[in-house]
Design a binder for these strands. Structure first.
Length: 491
RNA sequence: GGCCCCAUCGUCUAAUGGUUAGGACCUCGCCCUUUCACGGCGGUAAUAAGGGUUCGAAUCCCCUUGGGGUCACCA
């Protein structure tokens, strides 16, 4: 009856948007499940009504799907263990909490927030650990029943026995011991009837037959509470794996303060999902070899929890940029074409009609020079519009006194070409240079400046070829008119 | 502060008692290229400190230091 199929879950709380740390946690859960032919479940932990953010669930799901992390069960993909929203499972938690009360593993607490605050202050003043003093555990059965009948505001607390050793077995960290003295009588059911994370999480993980709990290290210190719960319910414990944290450059826990943390932000900046997934997978895990470029399905083959690191990892954007460029370069031109068209449709060039043939040439020419799709527009705007101005420092260096004259001559020669191909421009330029007894460079550099407005980019003959004869000539003529002589600039 | 976790180049990491401590990003230099990239070659750069154990320690143990997490009717 016990099925040993691996089941993992990602259990975010809908309090905002998907964090890159959350993405990695989700990814590891996904990869581990897939690697073991198991199931990956999405469960929404919406038990905090105060922090609930409208639209967060939809955003979480769409972001996960964007990244390619499709879940086998979850909201919208209802499985055997639905519902997957904790707010829809309230009665389940209540029943379980009441069961614990019957077993004396939990108890009702009627203490006011004021009393709790005073208690905490007093303990802190005395240098003690802030901890509930089990005051309400001393209430008689009659007292409790009367208060309940009177509808007094109450919570249900975990009844932790002091002096016990609690062992957390973690695949990543090994055996971690805690003393139950440091475990507070955690609230399980809040006064609004909602469960806390600890109860809901344990109950659902058990009911949903989760075999591996893979989550961030910030949960390690509350795992003893969960262990206690499993033991109180007499349930089999899942395998725990606490992932190292993702860090800011200053090594604190990755936070909004020091840069973007929302997956959405990276998406909006133009990062490819392939790059983000690849990058985040390597933050805390390696296969052990030197391979660093991965696609999601390759990760599915190789991922293992045993090779997850213990130490926190700094989220270093430079490496992400490199991976983005790599992934973009590895794509087929036809795929980049789709991305480029999307980019164009959201740009100032949206009303221009470029043919696929034209765009594919641009893609081929720029492929090795871009990091983001948007770079096609930003690094080579000259493929989309005639330069209106010319880079001054390049002009100062490359636009010599004789440049206008040389360019005029080149225009004349280009004019005579019929259906020229790239090599024709090149040959023509070289012939012209020879005739005029100047270096090729004396023509090449001004030509580049004239047609592109800048000093960097693909081979100038590629540019001219892509732009075409008429457009190139038009641009050269325009440059002759507009670029001031270097001698004028210098003065 | 209590408890817990962690510690190899600036960053991500490899090395599971025996390596000139390897790779990648970044950076620098050279080559390729009359541009810029890509690519190729090469350089700088690390075992936090101190004790043990061992023939031998980045690796095992202890202590120190440093960093982080957590101590809610938030997850």
């Amino acid at each position: 009856m016990i099925s040993n199929i691996v089941r993992t879950r990602f259990a975010p709380s809908p309090t905002g948007y998907l964090h890159v740390g959350g993405l990695r946690t989700a990814l590891y859960n996904y990869l581990f499940a897939k690697r073991n032919n198991g199931k990956f479940i999405l469960r929404i932990e919406d038990t905090d009504r105060a922090r609930y953010v409208e639209g967060a669930i939809e955003n979480l799901i769409s972001t996960l799907k964007w990244a390619g992390l499709y879940f086998d069960e979850g909201p919208g993909v209802e499985g055997e263990f639905a519902p997957y929203l904790q707010s829809e499972r309230l009665n389940i938690y209540k029943e379980h909490a009441e069961h614990l009360i019957k077993e004396k593993k939990a108890y009702y607490c009627f203490c006011s927030q004021e009393r709790l605050n005073e208690l905490r202050e007093k303990q802190q003043k005395e240098g003690l650990q802030p901890k509930y003093d089990k005051h309400c555990l001393g209430l008689s059965k009659d007292e409790v029943e009367k208060k309940l009948a009177d509808n007094e505001r109450h919570v249900i607390r975990l009844n932790v026995q002091p002096g016990e050793n609690i062992i957390v077995d973690d695949v990543i960290r090994g055996r971690v011991e805690f003393n139950s003295d440091v475990v507070d009588d955690q609230v399980l059911i809040k006064s609004d009837g909602y469960p806390t994370y600890h109860l809901a999480n344990v109950v659902d993980d058990h009911l949903m037959k989760i075999t591996h709990v893979i989550r961030g290290e910030e949960w390690l210190s509350s795992t003893p509470k969960h262990i206690l719960l499993y033991d109180f319910f007499d349930w089999e414990k899942p395998v725990f794996a606490h992932l190292p944290l993702l860090l800011n450059p200053d090594r604190s826990k990755l936070s909004k303060r020091q840069g973007d943390v929302a997956v959405e932000d990276y998406r909006a900046k133009g990062y490819l999902k392939e790059a983000l997934i690849n990058f985040v997978a390597l933050l805390g895990w390696t296969a052990g070899d030197d391979k660093e470029f991965y696609y999601l399905n390759e990760l599915k083959e190789k991922f293992s929890l045993e090779r997850v690191n213990k130490a926190g990892a700094v989220f270093n954007v430079e490496k992400l940029n490199w991976l983005n460029a790599e992934h973009l370069r590895k794509k087929e031109n036809s795929e980049i074409l789709i991305l480029l068209k999307e980019e164009l449709s959201g740009s100032k060039y949206k009303n221009q009609n470029y043919t696929d043939e034209y765009l594919l040439k641009v893609i081929e020419a720029m492929k090795e020079r871009v990091i983001f799709v948007k770079d096609y527009l930003e690094k080579s705007p000259y493929f989309f519009e005639t330069p209106g101005e010319y880079d001054e420092s390049v002009a100062a260096k490359r636009w010599k006194d004789n440049s206008p004259e040389l360019m005029k001559k080149l225009v004349e020669k280009f004019q005579k070409l019929e259906n020229p191909v790239k090599e024709d421009y090149e040959n023509t330029l070289k012939e012209t240079a020879a005739e005029l007894e100047v270096e090729n460079g004396d023509l090449i550099h001004p030509l580049r400046l004239a047609v592109s407005g800048i000093g960097a980019g693909p081979g100038v003959f590629d540019i001219v070829d892509i732009l075409g004869k008429e457009e190139s000539i038009k641009r050269i003529n325009k440059a002759i008119e507009l670029i001031p002589q270097s001698s004028t600039i210098k003065s």
